[in-house]
Design a protein around this nucleic acid. Structure first.
Lengths: 242, 242
DNA sequence: CGGTTGTTTGACGCCCTTCAACGAGCGTGG
DNA sequence: CCACGCTCGTTGAAGGGCGTCAAACAACCG
């Protein structure tokens, strides 16, 4: 029923570091099941103390924080292969919420086993820390974008990052990829208003730089986009898959 | 000459989780020396592959990223007890730069030992991941602040966070603490211009909410500050000390 | 067909950036 | 010893990028 780690479809992507057979077996012992959720489902709630950790196997979602005044910051977007719930596993409670945007399937790990896992599988413990470092890196880059780039640059940066992730996961064909979010989600991720996000996207579309409609993102002129975003696009390195 | 971990002055702060004697000994084996740097010194550079990891023992500094157009994002401020260089240790290179603002003294760890340390000291490996999770949490909160709060709220939030850290480290007396940064540093941390930061700080001073001058920060009306910042101030939890 | 959700477009105004200038403190060298 | 340069804080003025308000349109659905 549930996918065995040894058959995990994600391991075919070159986005992820290869695992030894022994490591795969360790993961299989750690994995306790699968969870399938419908679009819009809350997977984890800020402040909650989840007994489970997840790896996204299929589908996309959002991490976000809400402010008392109703404003929402999207921390990042969740793609297949992302590890969810590290904070709950370590800090005791989630510091943000997680929501499924599409239908999602997730591998489920038992939080109670987390510590023994850490002790008995130092390789994989190392990889969890690696993942945390990658996330820290991403958040630093996002902070820099929101703090220092204007609206046009922010959106260019985000589209590039998203496309980069899509390519790593073999989601692209001819520069196009599924991108099932709302404009409001992107706006909340970049600290922009919906209206201004919409108008900036429209400008990119007119200029034939990038177009996003009906759930599909198409990067037409990657070079100009990179120029606008002020990024030198280096190859993203492979990451661990839990 | 160098401070032994067993005598580390930071371990008196209630900011940090206690260590067993065995763990302290493990740290002493990992620590290879101390580094003392003058104000303004670059400790780590973005893109560099540092052979060393550090723990700030004394003094304050900044992590930041530079953009091609010269703008600077301060990722966060470094206080005593902060672990520096995790990204270099795991990802192979630093994704931001680190600079000393005051004179700083740092414990030095050998990056080559990092992996064996991880393997032989699962407790401490767990703590490193814990630190990474805390950092991730902070960056998520900072992202939310810059993305969703206006200038007044951002500054209120930052002053509260700073004061909170100062209190944990026993740096405060009567609500006052040393804060040796420039206004430009705070502005770059919050994605604001220097001018507007200055004017907002002036307003807080007039309103007798908080005053910062001559390297000292004084929180006069913590409650109003928290109200402005829209934060419910929960007790910060203890963190590991490497 | 009414209701809901998401995208699109126009109008208006303000928060914040940028430009500019001045003052204070401090170290350096003539 | 004072002039000079440099850094940092402070303040005023002007302009624009982006937020908010508002409304219309398309798609989907019970």
């Amino acid at each position: 029923m549930a996918v065995l780690c040894r058959n995990c479809p994600l391991r075919d992507c070159d986005a992820f570091q290869p695992l030894s057979q022994a490591e795969v077996r360790e993961m299989e012992k750690f994995k306790v099941g699968e969870l399938s959720v419908e679009p819009g489902t809350q997977i984890l709630m800020e402040g909650s103390n989840s007994p489970q950790l997840f790896t996204a196997l299929h589908g996309m979602g959002l991490r976000y924080k809400l402010l008392p005044n109703g404003r929402r910051q999207v921390i990042n977007m969740i793609f297949p292969g992302d590890f969810i719930g590290l904070q709950a596993g370590l800090l005791g409670e989630m510091k943000h919420s997680v929501e499924a945007t599409t239908k999602m399937i997730m591998c489920v790990f038992d939080r109670k086993e987390f510590w023994t896992f850490f002790r008995t599988s130092p390789n994989r413990a190392f990889d969890i820390t690696w993942l945390a470092a990658i996330e820290e890196h991403f958040l630093g880059a996002a902070l820099t974008t929101i703090g220092q780039r204007d609206a046009r640059q922010r959106i260019a940066w985000a589209l590039l990052k998203i496309h980069e992730r899509g390519k790593q996961l073999n989601l692209t064909s001819n520069g196009e990829m599924p991108f099932p979010f709302r404009q409001q989600d992107l706006a909340d991720a970049l600290g922009l208003s919906l209206v201004h996000t919409n108008k900036t996207l429209a400008r990119f579309r007119e200029m034939q730089i990038a177009s996003w409609s009906e759930g599909r993102l198409n990067i037409t002129d990657r070079e100009t986009l990179a120029e606008i975003a002020m990024v030198e696009d280096d190859e993203p390195q492979k990451r661990p898959l839990m």
